[in-house]
């Protein structure tokens, strides 16, 4: 409930920002050869001749009907564009994050348990390398090695090889849809397309997760209740996982939420490199074309996603930490 004011703020700011940006939509669409009269015509058609407050009111009125306007570049409604492209981005980001978790969390735990050992140093090197390599570079490097040199992965051309037909769309997640359709060939094909971009994102998001896991594990391991557990003779695995890690998970989850939300928007470059039909590349293209409606729609979709994500994290907190359930 508390997020409603911030959503209203996002609507206002995204509207104003797109108007302030340089570039005139009408000029862009009328083409270079347009006469001033034609320009005026286009402007009128788009409603750009009206004063700003009126434009805003019309925008808000449309919003309340769930209408985000039409994209001038694709000719489709923004709602339609986003719903068809969002699953592609979400699937990519989720799998990337999952990969990052599978690598970073064990790495962070081991680094904390064996502080100062080679694995601790490895953790530091991986984390530093992960953040310092730009995603497009990692992406290109992976494509070069696994597609060009080794030929293990298919050409980086979107979500599915053109020889396969998409499974019936149910969730929009290709992996899930192909499992529902029991089409294992397509599942394999979709996976093989997904693995490289997901890995690229994973390398990028590894660093913060590994760092936080290590740091919060170190705090948990030096706490009094871990000392009690050790003094009771509990097995090292119980001490590390049941006692230390479950307590160390809370900051990890917080970081996870942050990483997820900025990955969603920031994977534009990965989408570009792998020709991925996600919403990041959609928004950038619209922005370059001074196509306001999709940009506003994108910002709003991100804000809503962020709110949902935070709610999910709060609920997860309550599951893990009994104290949260009471003190709120």
């Amino acid at each position: 409930m508390t997020s409603i004011p911030s959503l209203i703020g996002v609507v206002i700011v995204s509207f104003l920002l797109t108007r302030v940006l340089p570039g005139d939509t009408a000029t862009y669409f009328a083409g270079p050869a347009a006469t001033p009269k034609a320009l005026e015509e286009v402007r009128k058609q788009l409603g750009l001749d009206k004063p700003l407050p009126e434009q805003f009111l019309r925008y808000v009125a449309d919003l309340t009907h769930g209408d985000l306007g039409n994209s001038l570049t694709t000719g489709q409604t923004v709602v339609g564009d986003i719903t068809s492209r969002l699953p592609a981005s979400a699937e990519l980001t989720l799998i990337g994050l999952l990969l990052a978790l599978l690598i970073a969390v064990p790495l962070g735990i081991l680094a904390a348990v064996r502080q100062g050992s080679w694995i601790d140093h490895l953790c530091r090197v991986v984390a530093t390398a992960g953040v310092s390599l730009p995603v497009f570079f990692t992406g290109l490097l992976l494509v070069y090695v696994f597609y060009f040199l080794l030929g293990w992965s298919p050409a980086p051309l979107g979500r599915l090889d053109i020889f396969f037909s998409e499974p019936p769309r149910i969730t929009g997640f290709l992996l899930v849809d192909s499992i529902i359709a029991r089409d294992w060939e397509v599942l394999r094909a979709a996976l093989s397309q997904l693995i490289l971009p997901a890995l690229t994102l994973a390398v990028f998001s590894l660093a913060p997760i590994a760092r936080i896991t290590r740091a919060s594990m170190l705090t948990a391991l030096s706490s009094d209740f871990v000392r009690t557990a050790r003094a009771s003779g509990l097995k090292p695995i119980t001490v590390t996982m049941t006692y230390a890690f479950r307590n160390a998970m809370l900051p990890v989850i917080t970081t996870l939420g942050m990483v997820f939300s900025f990955l969603l928007g920031a994977n534009v470059l990965v989408e570009k490199v792998f020709a991925w039909p996600g919403i990041g590349s959609y928004a950038v293209e619209a922005l370059i074309a001074s196509d306001f409606a999709p940009v506003q729609g994108f910002v709003l979709a991100m804000a809503i996603l962020y709110v949902i994500l935070n709610l999910a994290i709060d609920l997860l907190y309550g599951v893990i930490d009994p104290r949260v359930r009471v003190t709120t």
């Binding site: 706490s223 009094d224 209740f225 000392r227 009690t228 557990a229 050790r230 003094a231 009771s232 003779g233 509990l234 097995k235 090292p236 049941t242 006692y243 479950r246 307590n247 893990i320 930490d321 009994p322 104290r323």
Partner: peptide, 24 residues
Amino acid sequence: MRDLRGREISMIFQNPRAALNPIR
């Protein structure tokens, strides 16, 4: 030693609230 701890020698601590796992 792990077998010994808790079974033969055990310990109680200062600040008992912190000495217990807060989420178990």
